[in-house]
Simulated scan of single mutants.
Amino acid sequence: MSNHEKTLLTTPFIPFTRPHFNQETIDAVAEVLRSGWVTSGPKLAEFETALSDYFGGRPVRCFANGTATMKIALQVAGIGPGDEVITTPISWVATSNVILSVGATPVFVDIDPVTRNIDLNKVAQAITPQTRALMPVYLSGLPVDMDQLYGLAKTHQLRVIEDAAQAFGSQWHGQKIGGIGDLVSFSFQANKNLSTIEGGCLVFNSVEEAKLAEKFRLQGLTRQGIDAMDVDVLGGKDNLTDVNAVIGLHQLLELPKFQARRGALARQYFDAIRSELKAASLESLSLELPVENFSDTNWHMFQVVLPLEQLQVDRAQVMTDLKDLGIGTGVHYPAITGFTLYKNLGYQLSDTPIAQRIGRSILTLPLFPGMADEDIGRIAAALVGILKKYANK
């Protein structure tokens, strides 16, 4: 066995993310299981109240996942066949799939190469008489310019459905994402900053829309007394259980600690990567780091864009080499317009060239609160060492 192989056997693997649940959370889940009430019940109500408090008293309803939240937001906004919704091509495909699922048409606007979010300066030219809503995505938790976003919405009389799946804990000029705005959708999936394992929530401007969302959440049902009910809209089965809700309650208590740790790790990434590039004499390499924003973003992910045009390698090989060194990575995300479903619908990658480039080059590095400080140095050294190996001479 080589020294390299021996080192890999004794060096812990670093996944690109790992959720954290403390003992109090585990005990609380056990208590719910013993209670006999494990589906939607008192813990869900408590969680929704806690979230409403967090968002400054705005109505909040929870759902089984972050895909359901976006679909129900579209339904609440009355969006359906014949309508267009403007969104970004760099997101998890759920963002555009839910638009299709209500019979509407996604309209993709290219991204800003620096923020990697939808380029709001290009949105106005994509608006048509059929446009009903804007659906921005806050990649890695970094919000778009909210003043510009809502200025566009007001000018063109559009609803805004914020896909803030990755942005729980993010801010815009000191105001919580979700504490302002129109319909704001969050995901609580396992890799999110606040996790209920699976789940999500919607933040509303009115109690009336929140009550309508409750109907869509559970088969369109309205109870009318102890023995009567009615169904007046077509709903689904998208309720969150008390087991998930109690996890969320405890995660909410730990959120400030999680946020501080993520920010500290992100700062170390900037320092370590720049230091390694300098030490390797690779300052001229066009490795694109994220926006260095420590006031608005929640540092859900730390992503770099690889300078593939300067390397004699593709992204898959870089990921494989990192894995061989005990480092997990992810791809968030390939451009949606490159998927077969969307190509068959007539979309073309070339319509959004910046998203096309970013989508084939972006790489997600490990970032989660349980990481050790020394993990950052190890990852930075490994990444830069691989880039040096493949850099064009």
Rank of each mutant, 00 (worst) to 15 (best):
L139Y: 01
K237V: 15
K393M: 13
A272R: 10
I358F: 02
Q75G: 05
P106Y: 00
T131R: 00
F294D: 05
L341H: 09
A272T: 09
K215E: 03
R34P: 00
F204V: 00
K278T: 14
K43V: 07
P307G: 03
R61E: 06
A380H: 02
L183S: 03
P42K: 10
G151Y: 07
G377H: 02
K211T: 15
G338D: 09
V98K: 03
L218I: 11
S284G: 14
V109K: 00
Q251G: 00
L149V: 01
T105H: 11
T67W: 10
F270C: 01
P334W: 00
T352P: 04
Y390D: 00
T320Q: 12
V38R: 14
V203W: 04
V85M: 05
Y138W: 02
V203S: 05
A104K: 07
W37K: 11
Y150T: 06
S40L: 12
D147W: 10
Q75D: 13
Y269N: 08
G338L: 09
S52V: 06
R267E: 12
L322P: 01
E254G: 11
L9R: 11
H300C: 11
D182H: 05
E309F: 08
G235P: 03
A245P: 02
D163T: 04
A94K: 04
E292H: 13
K215I: 05
V85R: 02
S185Q: 04
A133H: 02
V38A: 10
V233E: 08
P42W: 00
A355S: 12
Q312A: 13
L345S: 05
F55L: 13
V304W: 01
L363Y: 06
R223Y: 12
L218M: 15
F13G: 02
G330S: 14
N191Q: 12
L183G: 03
E48D: 09
M371H: 05
P59E: 08
A381E: 15
L212G: 01
M371D: 03
S170N: 07
F108K: 03
F339N: 05
S206L: 07
V137Y: 10
P89H: 03
T297G: 04
R262S: 10
L234A: 12
N3S: 14
M301V: 11
S295R: 12
G370Q: 11
V76E: 00
P129K: 00
S295D: 15
N117Y: 03
E309M: 10
H173T: 12
T222C: 08
L311E: 01
A133G: 10
E288I: 15
Q224W: 12
S286I: 09
P366C: 06
A279C: 12
G330V: 08
G141M: 00
M371F: 05
T7A: 13
R18Q: 13
G263V: 11
R267N: 12
G330D: 14
I72R: 01
L306E: 06
M319P: 03
S295E: 15
L9V: 14
T49V: 15
L277A: 08
F188V: 03
R18G: 04
T105C: 10
G179V: 06
Q310F: 08
Q130V: 07
H173V: 08
R360T: 15
F63D: 05
E24H: 11
E209I: 03
C201Y: 08
E288N: 15
V291I: 13
